[in-house]
Computed example of a mutant assay.
Amino acid sequence: MNPNKPEHLYEKTISSQSIYEGRIIKVKVDEVLLPNGNTAKREIVHHQGAVAIIPLTDDGRLVAVRQFRKPLEKVIVEIPAGKLEPGEDPLSCAKRELEEETGYTAAHYEKLSAFYTSPGFADELLHVYVAKGLVKGESRPDEDEFVDLLELTLEEAHELHQAGEICDAKTVVALFHWENQMLRARG
């Protein structure tokens, strides 16, 4: 057995049925053959992919947005993010989303990571960028997007996390990255 190619774990698709196609996601149900010979159904959400931006001001603040999230039925604080358009370059999307949601542009972008948000049922790949050298401008949110702009210190962001207002994975990852970056800078 080759540990780098664990074929014994793969599930072969027997059939696939599309059950929903929306503007943001597509949902299908696959029947799969399991490694032990049994079959199972897998509900799979297809998403075009997205970007998230960790915008850091020159004075050491995180630019974030506060908005209502219907699936959670509450207002939360997040880093700016948005979905990729078909064929769109993730860096181009990051630049567009940062300006649309916050009004900021950035002189420097660094790709931090890319990760699957929920690989147990979705294929969404999220690309995360750090943006620095920010210049404030005029935000242009989508017509169905309503946000408040915040500039947070690390301490304020941790307080919001403890209070449950920062509760999404991308923003929690951003906090850990930001804190780690500050610790490394201190030596």
Rank of each mutant, 00 (worst) to 15 (best):
E85H: 11
F146T: 11
E151T: 10
F146V: 06
S113F: 08
R61N: 15
K95D: 08
K136L: 02
R61D: 08
E124R: 08
E99I: 00
E100N: 01
S92Y: 04
P55Q: 15
L125N: 01
Q162A: 13
E138R: 04
L98N: 05
A114Q: 14
L126Q: 05
V128P: 05
P86I: 05
L125V: 08
H127C: 07
G137W: 07
E97R: 11
P90Q: 11
E100S: 09
H158Q: 10
L126I: 09
E138Q: 01
T102I: 04
F68H: 12
L125M: 15
L134S: 02
P90I: 10
D59S: 14
E85A: 10
P119I: 05
R61G: 04
L160A: 06
D142E: 09
S92L: 13
F121L: 06
S118A: 08
D148P: 00
S113R: 09
R69K: 02
V75L: 01
L152K: 12
K95N: 02
R140M: 05
E101S: 05
L98Q: 04
L150E: 09
G60S: 11
L126Y: 05
V63K: 03
F68K: 02
S118N: 11
K83V: 05
E159N: 12
L72V: 06
P71V: 04
G103R: 00
Y109F: 15
E151D: 15
G103Y: 01
Y109K: 12
Y129H: 07
D89Y: 02
L154Y: 06
R66T: 09
R140A: 14
K74T: 08
V75N: 05
I79P: 11
L91T: 00
V147C: 12
A64M: 12
A114M: 10
K95T: 01
E78P: 00
E156R: 13
Y104R: 01
E124P: 02
H161D: 15
V75P: 00
A106P: 10
E73D: 06
V128K: 07
P71M: 07
A106I: 07
E73N: 12
V75G: 00
S118Q: 12
V77K: 00
Y109G: 15
Y104W: 05
G60F: 12
H158Y: 14
L150Q: 09
H161K: 14
F115C: 10
K132I: 06
L150Y: 15
G87T: 03
I76L: 13
P119W: 06
K83L: 12
T153L: 15
F115D: 06
V130G: 02
K132L: 10
T117F: 13
K132R: 14
E97P: 10
A122C: 10
R96A: 03
P80F: 08
A106T: 08
L149F: 11
P55K: 14
S118L: 13
P86V: 08
L62V: 11
K132W: 03
